[in-house]
Design a protein around this nucleic acid. Structure first.
Lengths: 219, 219
DNA sequence: CGGGTCGTCCACCTTTCGATAGATCCTTGC
DNA sequence: GCAAGGATCTATCGAAAGGTGGACGACCCG
C-alpha cells in the first residue's frame, strides 16, 4: 500500500490537531508535518515534499490562497486541498484560481475529508457539494458565449483581421501581416464594425473577447 | 413527502427505459415524461413542467446542449442534469455553459444518479468526480489573473478612466462622464499606457479584460 | 453570354487618438 | 514655511483611425 504524505496547515491549534488525528487514523495516510501559517506551509512543503497539502484559507500573515499560489508555481507541486470555515465566494474562487485541486468546508465529515485526500492523491479534483452549484454558475458566466450567427456575416479575411485587431495590432501591422495595403485594412475594419454593429476598434476587440474569438493567453 | 417530477431525454430506447426504471424505483421520484431528442425534450419540458430534466447530450437532431440552452432561457426553467457516455471536454464545458446544473457520466451507479436528481432538486449542483479535476483546471484558466502590482501604479482617476475605456468609450465620452476636458482624458490615457507598458487603447482594453478589471456582461 | 452579387483591394478626407509641455492644487517631510 | 513630489487638469501638433467612393476579379444564375 502506498502511503500518502500529507502536510496540514492551520493557524488554530485545535483544528490542526483534529486534522492530524483524523488523517493519521488512516493506515494509508501519514501527516508528515504541520504549519501554523502560509509562510511556514510553503517552507515545509518545499522541504518535506508532501503528496497532499491540507490548507486552511484563513490564516494570519500569508494566507492560504497566497500560499497555494506560491506552491503551485513550484516544480513537482503537491496537490492542494483548500479548507475553510467560511463559505465565501472569494475563498472558493480564489483558491481554485490559485491552483487548488480541491475545496472543502470545515463542517464536512471526517470521512469526507479522508476521501478527499485520497481523491486528490489519485489526481482527481474535489468540490464540496455545498458549493458546487456556485462554481458551476460562475463557470458558466466566465465561459465565452459561443460564436453567434452574426459571425457568419464576416468573410474569412474580415475574421482574420478581427483576430489580429483583437490582439492589439494597428492597421499598419495588420497590413504587414497580411501583405496588403493599410488602406485596405481600414476598409476591412470598417466592414467589421458595420456588420457587427460596433463603433470603434476597441468595441471590436471587446466583442472578440466576449465571444471567445480570442482567448486569454495561458498564464 | 415532495415528489420530484422528472423528464428523461435519451435517444436510445434501452437507456431511456433503464433511466425510467431506476428513477421510478424511488418513492419520491416520478418520471412524468420521456423524449427521444432535444426538440421533443424542449417541447415536453415546456408542456409538463418537470422539476428536473435528465438529458442525454448526444442525440440526433437538436442535441442535448442546444436543448439545455433553450430550456434555461425559459421562465421557471427546470433543473438540468446532463448525462453522457462520452467523457469529452466539449460536452462537459458546453453543458455547463449552456446552463446545466449537474453533469454525470453514464457509467455512474444508479444510486449516484438518484442522489444527483435529489441534489439538483434541492438547488445544488453536481459534478461527476471523474471530471471535477478538469472543470477546476478550466475554471482556473478562465479566471482573470488577480490585480497585479502594476495596478497600484494607477491613480484612482486613471483606474476609473481605464474602466470606462475598456467599455469602449471614446476620450470625448469619458470626458463627459467625468466632467473634465477631453484633453485631460488624453493625458490620463497616456499615463495609463506608459505605466502599464502598453501602446494603444486597444491594448489597455485587452489588459483590463485579462486582469478582470472589467467583467463580461451578464448574458 | 451578360448581369448581379460578393470578396478583396486602393485612395481621399475628416475625426479621433497619442505624445509632449506646462499649469494648478494638495500632500509630505525637512 | 517651503520645497519636492504626485495627482489632476489644459492646450497643441503630428500620427493613426474611421467614413466614403470606387476599381477589379471570381462566382453564380438565368
Amino acid at each position: 500500500m502506498v502511503t500518502i504524505r500529507v502536510l496540514v496547515a492551520d493557524d488554530q491549534e485545535a483544528a490542526r490537531e483534529a486534522l492530524r488525528l483524523i488523517l493519521n487514523g488512516e493506515p494509508d495516510i501519514d501527516v508528515i508535518a504541520t504549519a501554523v501559517d502560509g509562510a511556514e506551509a510553503v517552507h515545509q512543503a518545499l522541504l518535506r515534499r508532501p503528496d497532499v497539502v491540507v490548507m486552511d484559507l484563513r490564516m494570519p500573515g500569508m494566507d492560504g490562497i497566497a500560499a497555494i499560489d506560491r506552491l503551485t508555481a513550484a516544480e513537482s507541486a503537491p496537490r492542494l486541498l483548500a479548507l475553510t470555515t467560511f463559505d465565501l465566494d472569494e475563498y472558493l474562487f480564489g483558491a481554485l484560481r490559485a491552483g487548488a485541486a480541491g475545496f472543502l468546508l470545515k463542517d464536512s465529515d471526517p470521512d469526507v475529508l479522508i476521501a478527499a485526500v485520497r481523491e486528490l492523491h489519485q489526481g482527481r479534483g474535489l468540490i464540496d457539494p455545498q458549493v458546487t452549484g456556485r462554481l458551476i454558475s460562475r463557470f458558466a458566466a466566465l465561459s465565452p458565449r459561443p460564436a453567434t450567427p452574426e459571425l457568419d456575416l464576416l468573410t474569412p479575411r474580415e475574421h482574420h483581421v478581427l483576430r489580429l485587431l483583437a490582439r492589439g495590432m494597428s492597421n499598419g501591422e495588420i497590413a504587414a501581416a497580411c501583405t496588403i495595403e493599410e488602406g485596405t485594412v481600414k476598409t476591412h475594419v470598417n466592414r467589421i464594425l458595420t456588420k457587427l454593429g460596433l463603433r470603434t476598434r476597441v468595441h471590436a476587440a471587446i466583442y472578440a473577447y466576449e465571444h471567445g474569438i480570442v482567448t486569454r493567453d495561458a498564464p
